[in-house]
Amino acid sequence: MILKSMMRLILTLGLFVMFWGGEARAQSCTFSATGVNFGAVDVLGSSPKDAAGNIAISCTAFLDLLSSIDMRIHLGDGSGGVSGSLRRMTGTATGLNYDLYQNAGRTTVFGGTYGTHGGSSLQLTGSGVLSLLTTTGVNVPIYGRVPAGQNTALPGNYLSSFTRNPLDVRVDYRTCSLLLICTNRTASFSFNVQALVSANCRVVADDLNFGTTGFLDQAVNGASAMRVTCTSGSSYQVGIGYGLHGTNVNDRHMQSLTGRRIAYQLYRNSGRSQTWGLLADGLTAAGTGTGATQNYTIFGRVPAQTTPPPGTYADTVVVTVTY
Rank of each mutant, 00 (worst) to 15 (best):
R268A: 14
T212M: 10
P141S: 05
C59A: 09
R72D: 00
C182K: 02
D206V: 09
L179H: 14
C201R: 06
V203A: 10
A26E: 01
T213I: 05
L130K: 13
P303G: 03
S47T: 14
L15D: 12
F215P: 05
V220L: 14
W20H: 09
R227I: 03
T231L: 07
A292H: 07
F19N: 07
G300L: 04
T183S: 08
L15W: 06
A93K: 13
S235F: 07
V203S: 06
G111I: 01
G111P: 07
D207L: 09
V36Y: 09
A280H: 13
F31T: 00
A33W: 03
H117Q: 05
T322F: 08
Y158N: 01
Q255G: 04
Y296V: 08
L63Y: 13
L124H: 06
D172G: 03
C176Q: 15
P310E: 02
Q274P: 06
P48A: 01
G137W: 08
S234D: 11
R87Y: 01
L15R: 15
P166Q: 01
F16L: 11
G156A: 04
T92Y: 02
T312I: 04
G95R: 03
G35E: 02
A285C: 08
V109I: 05
S234A: 12
Y101S: 09
V17W: 06
P155G: 00
G211P: 13
G39N: 13
R227S: 11
T30F: 09
S273E: 03
Y114Q: 12
Y242D: 01
V220W: 10
F162V: 00
A304P: 11
R164K: 10
N209D: 04
G311W: 15
R106N: 04
L257G: 15
D315C: 09
L3C: 14
L132S: 13
T212S: 12
S85Q: 15
Y114E: 09
Q194Y: 05
G287C: 10
S79C: 02
R261F: 03
S160F: 00
Q194L: 07
A153D: 12
Q102A: 03
G81P: 06
A61Y: 11
A40N: 15
V193D: 00
V302S: 03
